[in-house]
């Protein structure tokens, strides 16, 4: 079945089983590999991306529901390495990743969180992000999200 949607601003059309999880379409058909397979059951958040701005666990989101929508993956969060999204910039400054596998999902969740709560507290972060990291980058993720919120604010205020 042909399904049409936008990915990172670009219109695409894919011909796959309509029930295929968006995760596999993004990775294998569209060759965008930042979105990761972790658990396949929307529990770990490694596959997090945005569908029409909503944080979505793409391993459990059939591609047919993306029809006509805007999908954003980590690759679409910033235009290039010089103009990083506040979350990516904060991740650089806090030297967050270890193995790095879960980080795209965390960054997508963080990007959504600082849109919703412009100055999140540690408790806000702990209560709202339920992704899994196994290397133990948790303390740095919390610091980086707070820093990202500050970067976002300084960018907004300088406009």
């Amino acid at each position: 079945m042909k399904i049409n949607f936008k990915i990172n601003g670009k219109a695409v059309s894919v011909d796959v089983d309509a029930d295929t999880p968006l995760l596999w379409v993004v990775r294998d058909e569209l060759k965008l590999k930042a979105t990761k397979y972790g658990c396949g059951r929307a529990m770990c958040g490694a596959c997090s991306l945005h569908v029409d701005g909503e944080l979505t666990r793409s391993c459990s989101f059939p591609v047919k529901f993306a029809e006509g929508k805007e999908v954003t993956t980590l690759e679409g969060l910033s235009p290039n390495e010089e103009e990083l999204h506040p979350v990516q910039q904060a991740w650089m400054e806090e030297n967050v990743p270890q193995c790095g596998y879960c980080q795209p999902g965390f960054m997508m969740a963080a990007a959504k969180l600082i849109k919703e709560i412009d100055n999140p507290s540690t408790e806000d972060i702990k209560a709202n992000i339920s992704n899994i990291c196994r290397c133990g980058t948790h303390p740095r993720i919390i610091k980086a999200i707070k820093r990202a919120a500050q970067i976002q604010q300084s960018k907004t205020s300088s406009l």
Binding site: Q88, G100, M107
Partner: peptide, 11 residues
Amino acid sequence: LLQKVMGASIF
């Protein structure tokens, strides 16, 4: 760091 923050396909 940059590869991992940009989500490069490295795994």
